[in-house]
Amino acid sequence: MPDAILHIGFNKCGSTALQQWLSAQEDALLAQGIWYRRMDPRTDVVCTNPHLQVLAFTLADQPVPSRPMNAVLGIPEGDRVAQDAVAHAFREQFEAQVANGGFKTWVGSSEALVSRFMTPEAISALADWLSGLFGNVRYVAYVRRPETWLVSLFGHQLRKTASPEDLTAFVDRFGPAPFARLLDMWRTAVGQEALDVRLFEESWLGGGGLVRDFQTVLDLPAGTLPTRSKRVNTTFRNRMNPWSRAPKRPVLSAQTRDMIAQSNAEGMGWIESTFFADRQTEFRSWAAGSETRC
């Protein structure tokens, strides 16, 4: 049986860069025995494989609550017949491709799998399905520091909606970053050893960059494939006004920093003790320090 590596990509954590690189290197990866194929009906974004979320909920006998994904795949809200048809068609095609072989490792990437809509039942159902198709299944997630993640998310929303909301109000409304809650659901479903949590920061990444680090995940020797591809975050791009596309990264006030630190203390503590118990000093230095863009 082939193995599998599934990148469960938190938004604003380099998912677009990885997906663009994987798409650009699809043929070169296959020559190395690694099968990756972009699976998304949209042409204006690179976030791939929304089908996996639909299949997860269908396998768990639950309706998909994510309206954006339903719209992308043509599923009317609450229409289980349409949902099941999309899931069945994807599952049939995917399982046939796995059965045909020709590769050692399948690589997938989907931001939909760590959306706020995911449930423990859907995650467990998807993990059980993948375990039946592949020998060894590994799950990879990159995590950012909450304050830099929230600033990035706020800038993204500002460009998308031109909202008058300020950063402090956004942080107060948003609450803690979802990393710990969602990682706990995945850890419970797939087991501690199968979940590889990596920090989105230069000094933590193998080889000094996000794509290069993911190449180490794929067990590709250095220099096997180029590490750069065109990096453009296309999410919502066609819906933005030209004036709104420029980066907007507001400066955090001391009050807002404290608010973020307090609301995320429990979650960050759990991530540290669960995944970085052997590197606590380094983790705490990363959590308290400034982040290098990768």
Rank of each mutant, 00 (worst) to 15 (best):
252 L>I: 03
212 R>H: 13
189 A>L: 13
183 L>C: 04
211 V>S: 11
246 A>G: 07
214 F>D: 08
242 P>V: 09
228 R>A: 13
238 N>P: 01
241 N>H: 08
221 P>D: 09
193 E>D: 15
206 G>D: 13
183 L>A: 00
196 D>R: 05
223 G>M: 04
190 V>S: 03
253 S>V: 06
252 L>G: 06
225 L>H: 02
207 G>S: 07
239 R>A: 13
224 T>V: 11
238 N>M: 11
245 R>D: 12
202 E>K: 12
244 S>Y: 01
246 A>L: 08
233 N>F: 08
196 D>G: 01
192 Q>H: 13
251 V>S: 11
239 R>E: 14
248 K>L: 12
208 G>F: 14
243 W>K: 05
231 R>S: 15
244 S>A: 13
218 L>T: 10
198 R>S: 14
218 L>C: 09
189 A>D: 00
237 R>N: 03
204 W>S: 14
183 L>F: 04
226 P>V: 06
187 R>N: 12
213 D>Q: 07
237 R>Q: 13
216 T>M: 02
204 W>C: 09
250 P>E: 06
232 V>C: 07
188 T>F: 07
228 R>M: 08
254 A>E: 15
203 S>Q: 15
252 L>W: 11
187 R>K: 10
237 R>E: 13
225 L>Y: 04
247 P>K: 01
200 F>Y: 15
226 P>F: 13
199 L>V: 05
240 M>F: 08
246 A>F: 10
184 D>S: 13
246 A>W: 05
206 G>Q: 08
224 T>C: 13
218 L>N: 03
223 G>P: 07
184 D>N: 11
190 V>H: 04
239 R>Q: 14
230 K>W: 04
235 T>V: 05
227 T>G: 15
219 D>H: 14
232 V>Q: 03
223 G>I: 09
192 Q>K: 11
193 E>V: 03
196 D>H: 06
223 G>S: 05
254 A>K: 02
222 A>Q: 04
246 A>P: 00
211 V>Q: 05
197 V>W: 02
184 D>Y: 10
239 R>Y: 14
218 L>E: 05
225 L>D: 02
237 R>H: 13
200 F>W: 10
